[in-house]
Design a protein around this nucleic acid. Sequence first.
DNA 1: ATACTATATGGAGTGTACTCCAAGTCAAGA
DNA 2: TCTTGACTTGGAGTACACTCCATATAGTAT
Lengths: 121, 121
Amino acid sequence: MTIAEVSRKYEISADTLRYYERIGLIPPVPRTRSGIRDYDETSCGWVELMKCMRAAGVQIEALIEYVALYRQGNQTLEARKQLLMRQRDLLTSRITDMQASLERLDRKIQLYEQGKMYVEE
Amino acid sequence: MTIAEVSRKYEISADTLRYYERIGLIPPVPRTRSGIRDYDETSCGWVELMKCMRAAGVQIEALIEYVALYRQGNQTLEARKQLLMRQRDLLTSRITDMQASLERLDRKIQLYEQGKMYVEE
DNA sequence: ATACTATATGGAGTGTACTCCAAGTCAAGA
DNA sequence: TCTTGACTTGGAGTACACTCCATATAGTAT
């Protein structure tokens, strides 16, 4: 797959895809003899994973570290698991915070619906 | 309340509190005759609201617009409500995305726990 | 009155994550 | 073969949300 196809498939700009590869957020993508990127299943899998993690707000730095550990082989399995668990905990608490904010927003909207916002902020 | 007290109370730096006021994220804070900020209940309420909304990832621009509408008085009640509803929808979909990512992360961690990461990314 | 700490303003600087650009190479159709 | 559009790299630029700094003034304790 060309970079344009991957870009369309995952709705990530080609610039961002190249940027992700350059900084090590995804491992090097296979190339044709002339140097043009030719995304295979594996590379697409990485792109999809990173799209998902970034959408969740996981920091690029943590993801770069994960990829770096992955590329070092099986002796990093435990470290990778620890990293993922840490990110899961962070994500869980972000979701909790956001749910609390959502409830606050809902209450505020309710006040507007009841025409009670003359004294509130 | 002084800016230092508000800063401690809400765990927001004094610089950020001044920044929020400067850009209109909160309405002007009352001052002493000599120009020093003296936060009252209302100002604290705004600070607390914005801390909550920012923690949820609501864009500063949307919040500035909300405050601007608020300051224009009661003829903006409907516009404010619409704005809040829009932000609620955005927040809801972000939470949904994050929950999906969380599940993906959990499955990945499970694979690590089962020692099945020799073939996965 | 002096010293010291807090607060004020305007403006510059920082970190994160892209996003764009210039200059050059590659590939597919007429 | 020529043209046109896609692809390459390295590096600069942008957007957002702070964060820091210099300089000046204010408030408090001795």
